[in-house]
Design a protein around this nucleic acid. Structure first.
Length: 516
RNA sequence: GCGGGAGUAGCUCAGUUGGCAGAGCAUCAGCCUUCCACGCUGAGGGUCGCGGGUCCGAAUCCCGUCUCCCGCUCCA
């Protein structure tokens, strides 16, 4: 099967079986926004629990918080998002390619600098030992012209950027005769500003209200509460703060189903360490986080690390955990060594000390941070893609059959157990419902009596229910039921009274967490 | 935003040259009482994405518009 087909089937399956719907579908939908349906919400909750327990429950030195989406506007100035998430974009009309205007100008400056160093090299060759580079740079006309040009372009660019003068930025590209690096065309559109942060207004009267942003990442809610948590929890370094929450980014193009959405959910943990220890902890969390994925029991080759060469403005080292989606290996989680950048910035902007007194070293310092940041929606998609199976079966009479089954880890499955009466009479429904009512406090159960037994099994396969039990006439005699396994379709006869014992272990999160 | 493809029943899709809106699955009711999709009978369900135009007549041709999918940039 082609991978692209698989992805299409997966998205169709999500809609058909109540995992994910497009937002506002009856009004033609809202681009790149999705709603989680009845089974989607369950699965999502289970993923969150698996993560939260792995981080907070199992680590004495990690606590969880839940910070607000609205934050003081200064937070985003301090974090660098106001500047870094503001990209001026320009399109080339001939090649139809889109570029960041600032990158085009930077590349132009790089080229000029290359020219200068070429000039210097050439001269060095010509003058031999007598060559004085400083002198040459100060006197050579071509070098001086280029330096002057670089300075003027830089000055114009900084001025235009500060004023938000998009026409000015475009004029630099025109004046410098910057061409599309691919096609060589100079046929440019206007420069447009894409602010990746959503803006809204806080305040009762719109005129007095101040502009605020919907957070583009949850991390800052952790950083601004660093002192609160450290003091109130009497936390000692190293320690971590975890959080699950919504974040918002106004993506230029948001695609690939729930992989890149405008409103998405992050599960982040910021781990605060003594400066100098950050590398050790970075490696620790890389391994720890990878283990979390591998514990799910899928093909391990589908997960890999991708180390970043180009780093974000705040990072010292960065690696992604990638999953082999039908559209290629893509990032699910990022592990970043963020240095003291964020706390340092907030310390500067808010004017208060955001420091930790280290009793061992007998001094105060701004801790370094190692971040683990996973996209919950991406994890959801990872699970579905990994669990999806279209199985070909040979029936007893030799006919071809197929079933679609989600091989989800039992502890994460939206429904753990389905209870069926074999037929809808002779008191079998009543017995079934009694069993369901008895188990529902411990195990997420579903009762179904419609359609043939085979169909009911297949419907549960399609939503990933790991176990089904069927109550038949024999149940009335010896209180045993048929237990049917999703993955193998095998059946066995078990006493109804022992179901909790047999299944409880299999579907519990505990078993999964113990392997970490 | 630009280029390419698509939009018909809840889902998957047919629909010829412009001439009565279709199938399978699903749903509902009744019958059957069955351990792995597809037993029998019947019923409901459509502004053919939306708006306009051409025509005696448009799902079909033309224009506009919205949404989705695939590429170009960014990221969790």
């Amino acid at each position: 099967m082609h991978q692209e087909d698989l992805f299409k089937k997966l998205t169709a399956h999500c809609k058909e079986y109540g995992f994910i719907f497009q937002s506002s579908e009856i009004y033609d939908g809202l681009s790149a926004v999705y709603d989680y349906g009845q089974y989607g919400a369950e699965l999502k909750n289970n993923i969150v629990k698996y993560w939260w327990d792995a981080m907070v429950l199992l680590n004495d030195n990690i606590v969880g918080i839940d910070s607000a989406i609205f934050m003081h506007p200064s937070v985003w100035k301090a974090s660098g998002h106001v500047d870094a998430f503001n990209d001026p974009l320009i399109d080339n009309k001939d090649s139809k390619k889109r570029y960041r205007a600032d990158v085009l100008i930077e590349e132009y400056i790089d080229k000029l600098e290359e020219k200068i160093s070429k000039e210097v090299k050439k001269a060095a060759k010509r003058y031999g030992d007598k060559f004085d580079e400083t002198m040459f740079r100060q006197t050579n006309k071509r070098v001086l012209d280029n330096i002057e040009l670089i300075d003027s372009v830089k000055k114009r660019f900084i001025e235009a950027s500060e004023k938000g003068d998009l026409e000015g930025i475009r004029q630099i590209i025109i004046d410098c005769k910057i061409a599309d690096p691919e096609s060589g065309s100079r046929n440019w559109t206007d420069v447009r500003q894409f602010n990746l942060m959503f803006e809204t207004r806080l305040g009762s009267v719109s005129e007095d209200a101040s502009k605020i942003y919907l957070r583009p990442e949850t991390a800052q809610g952790i950083f601004v509460n660093f002192m609160n948590v450290q003091k109130s929890g009497r936390m000692k370094l190293p320690f971590g703060i975890a959080q699950v929450g919504k974040a918002f980014r106004n993506e230029i193009v948001a695609r690939q189903f729930i992989f890149r959405m405008r409103e998405f959910e992050q599960m982040e943990m910021q781990f605060f360490v003594r400066p100098g220890n950050e590398h050790e902890w970075y490696e620790y969390w890389k391994e720890k986080r990878m283990k979390w994925y591998k514990a799910l029991g899928f093909d391990e080759n589908k997960f890999r690390f991708h180390d970043h060469v180009k780093l974000a403005h705040y990072a010292k080292a960065a690696a992604d955990i990638e999953f082999a989606f039908p559209f290629g290996f893509k990032e699910v989680e990022g592990i970043h060594s963020r240095t003291d950048y964020d706390l340092g910035q907030h310390q500067k902007f808010c004017g208060r000390k955001l420091q930790y007194f280290d009793t061992e070293l007998n001094k105060s310092y701004v801790p370094y941070v190692v971040e683990t940041s996973i996209g919950l929606d991406r994890m959801f998609l990872t699970l579905l893609a990994a669990a999806w199976d279209e199985e070909k079966i040979e029936k007893d009479n030799g006919a071809q059959d197929q079933r679609i089954v989600l091989r989800l880890p039992p502890s994460l499955a939206p429904v753990k157990l389905a209870v069926f009466p074999l037929v809808r009479k002779d008191g079998l429904p009543e017995i079934s419902q009694k069993i369901r009512d008895d188990l529902r406090f411990d195990i997420s159960c579903q009762y179904e009596e419609k359609d043939s037994i085979g169909r009911r099994y297949r419907r549960q396969d399609a939503i990933g229910t790991p176990f089904c039990i069927t109550v038949d006439h024999q149940t009335k005699e010896d209180e045993t039921v048929t237990l049917r396994y999703r993955d193998t379709m095998k059946q066995e006869r078990v006493p109804a009274g022992k179901l909790r014992e047999i299944l409880g272990e299999k579907v519990s999160m505990k078993k999964l967490l113990q392997t970490l």
